[in-house]
């Protein structure tokens, strides 16, 4: 573990920007931290708000049956979080309490509910779009934000298990969605440029699981389907992905049966903003006291 990340995390706790819970990657947020998130959210809207996106907000859980169909477990079984609950009678309740007080594993009787935690803001969206029937001419555009969950405990404050993701999702023809992604690659650079943090944009891959995942990752890179805007937070050598720009080709269109107005399978692309990561990048590079941040940065966020 790096010395610096411990220092940075300790600093965030010491300044009460993040609040420890005893679990790595699960933190409370202070009013100051939330204000930075809110201002950054507004900054995103100042770039994308004029595009006429449908605003949709889902809670951080999704229908388990739809999650199973989404294919997430094929690629990221290790990151998924499922919600289980007690579903027993009085006897089972007594057993549970007995185990609990004896310090034994009491979770055995927990049963899977019909809800799983959303791994990305856009996962609950696609099936609802499919229900609307074929896309209108020109496709559709959505504005999403939700807390997301990924099971990857870490002492790196930029790798949290519960975090917020803002997204714009474009659904349409290959031309429409690749143009959308290019627009946001340009906007992303301009937007983060206003925040005065060092960054780089590079081809990337998702952390697909296992050897099959190695191949999916290589395919994704070969085809340049994913780009990330990276900011050094923990280390210069391994900068943190703060924005990602993804072209899914017809993957979700085929999976969910979303067709274009002409009957062809829809293509999709999204831009995702890691809200906490951008806030942390700001605290890392400009310090823990927002009043002392450089004035162009303060102007970009607070006007």
């Amino acid at each position: 573990m790096c010395e610096n990340c411990t220092t940075f995390r300790k600093g965030l706790f010491a300044h009460r920007l993040l609040i420890e819970t005893g679990v790595d990657g699960l933190y409370g947020r202070s009013g100051v931290f939330e204000d930075v998130i809110q201002r950054f959210d507004n900054l995103i809207t100042s770039f994308g708000g004029g595009d006429g996106a449908d605003v949709v907000r889902f809670p951080p859980g999704m229908n388990r049956a739809l999650f199973e169909k989404s294919g997430y477990l094929k690629s990221f079984p290790n990151l998924a979080g499922t919600i289980h609950a007690f579903n027993g009678n009085d006897k089972a309740h007594a057993d549970l309490l007995e185990k609990l007080f004896a310090g034994e594993d009491w979770t055995e009787g927990q049963e899977a509910t019909d809800i799983v935690l959303a791994p990305a803001a856009c996962y609950p969206l696609y099936p609802t779009v499919a229900q609307l029937g074929p896309l209108p001419e020109g496709g559709r555009l959505y504005d999403l934000q939700s807390y997301c969950f990924r099971r990857e405990p870490s002492q790196d404050p930029a790798r949290q298990q519960f975090f917020r993701m803002r997204e714009y999702v474009r659904i349409g023809s290959p031309e429409e969605v690749t143009e959308f992604r290019q627009t946001w690659l340009d906007r992303g650079r301009e937007l983060i440029g206003k925040l005065g943090v060092p960054f780089d944009v590079d081809v990337a891959n998702d952390p697909f699981f296992g050897r099959a995942g190695r191949m999916l990752a290589n395919n994704q890179r070969d085809q340049r389907l994913k780009f990330e805007l990276l900011v050094p937070i923990e280390s210069v050598e391994k900068p943190t992905a703060c924005l990602s720009f993804n072209y899914h080709q017809d993957h979700f269109g085929t999976l969910w049966g979303i067709s274009q107005h002409n009957g062809e399978t829809a293509h999709t692309a999204c831009v995702g903003f890691g809200m906490e990561r951008v806030a942390l990048a700001l605290f890392k590079h400009h310090g823990f006291e927002v009043d002392k941040w450089p004035s162009p940065v303060r102007k970009a966020l607070w006007g």
């Binding site: 191949m215 999916l216 994704q220």
Partner: peptide, 11 residues
């Protein structure tokens, strides 16, 4: 051939 089918083929 899709990426996912290529993985199945590889296995």
């Amino acid at each position: 051939l899709t990426s996912f089918a290529a993985v199945q083929l590889m296995l």
